[in-house]
Simulated assay, not measured.
Amino acid sequence: MESYQQLYQRVVERKGGEQVVEGLLSKPLNTKQLKRVSADQWLEEFTRKIFQSGFYWQVIDNKWPGFREVFWDFNVARLLQMPAEMLEQKATDERIVRNFNKVKTIPLNAAMIHFHQQDHGQGFSDFIADHPPERIIELWAHLKKHGARLGGNTGVYALRMLGKDTFILSRDVEAHLRGHGIIDTGIQSQKAQRDAQNFFNDLQQQSGRSLQELSQLVAFSAGDNHAGLDVK
């Protein structure tokens, strides 16, 4: 298996130097910072990623001020008191992307966040913050099981956006993992996720870097993202 140093050196060569690479990397929030993320922020980001899934992200971002107006800035407590008929009305509002199946996830995920303390003995932000990165796929599974439409990469991208340390099984990351024989099953299978977790845990032990940085490095090492090309 390729070592961290081999991986890093290849990225440096592809991107045009160590300084360039380091400038491209971003880091997650620390535990204390994550615990300050509010329930409303979690619900908003889950909803944004649900609507972006299978859609042009920029279209959703452009309409997001309308989403915030329609859904009261994603106030969890207020949304949980909303009657079903009002939700149906909001789903037809022209300020949002009118997809009732996705709109229905908002009160469901609000309930997951709000009742986490009651169901699991710990507030939702504390739960996210305290979950060990070396078992991050267990957190993915929790969101998929207890949330609405948070499976696949949807919940994972929300975690990344709000600062939780996680790797992401993007197309470039998948290409690297398959190319090096680390995974050989469907990318969303439990086996593939376990193998990916073990791979990133090993890189973390070698480098001391976060999963987020390592995930970015792996992505930069594969695909069409050489020096001079815009990489998102």
Rank of each mutant, 00 (worst) to 15 (best):
V37S: 02
W64P: 02
S53T: 15
T47L: 00
L29G: 02
Q33C: 06
Q19M: 06
R36K: 15
L43D: 03
N30F: 00
P28W: 05
G54C: 08
T31M: 12
G16Y: 08
Q58R: 15
R48S: 10
A39V: 01
R48A: 14
K35R: 12
L24H: 03
Q19P: 02
K32I: 09
P65I: 01
V59H: 10
D61R: 10
G23F: 04
L29W: 06
I60K: 12
W42R: 06
A39I: 00
P28E: 03
K49P: 02
F46R: 02
Q33K: 11
E45Q: 15
T47G: 04
E45M: 13
G54Y: 07
W42N: 00
L29A: 08
V37I: 15
Y56P: 08
K49Q: 14
L29Y: 10
F46A: 09
Q58K: 15
V37G: 05
D40Q: 02
Q19R: 15
S38G: 11
S26Q: 13
W57P: 07
T31F: 02
N62Y: 10
K35N: 03
T31R: 12
L34Y: 03
F51E: 05
F51M: 08
S53W: 01
K63E: 07
V59F: 09
I60A: 09
Q41F: 04
Y56L: 13
E44L: 08
D40P: 01
E18L: 06
F55L: 15
E44V: 05
W57C: 10
P65V: 10
Q41Y: 01
E22R: 13
G23V: 07
K63P: 04
E22S: 10
D40S: 11
W42D: 02
Q52C: 13
S53P: 07
W42C: 05
K32C: 04
A39P: 07
S53M: 00
Q33A: 13
L34W: 00
Q52N: 06
G23A: 06
R36D: 13
K35E: 12
F46S: 06
K32P: 00
K63G: 06
R36C: 11
G17F: 03
L43A: 05
K27H: 02
E44I: 01
F51C: 00
Y56Q: 15
Q58A: 15
I60V: 15
W64I: 09
V37R: 09
F51L: 04
D61I: 13
S53G: 11
K63L: 13
E45R: 13
P65H: 09
L25E: 04
F55V: 11
F55C: 03
Q41N: 10
Q58S: 14
I60L: 12
K35Q: 12
N30Y: 00
G54D: 05
T31C: 03
L25F: 01
Q58N: 14
V20K: 13
N30Q: 07
A39L: 03
G17R: 08
S26T: 14
S53C: 14
L34A: 08
N62H: 14
E22H: 05
N62D: 15
V59E: 10
R48G: 08
E44P: 02
N30G: 11
V59M: 14
P65D: 05
N30I: 00
K63C: 03
V20F: 03
Q52D: 06
F55T: 07
R36F: 06
L43K: 04
L25C: 00
I50Y: 03
V59P: 01
G23N: 08
F51I: 03
K27Y: 09
Q58W: 12
K49L: 08
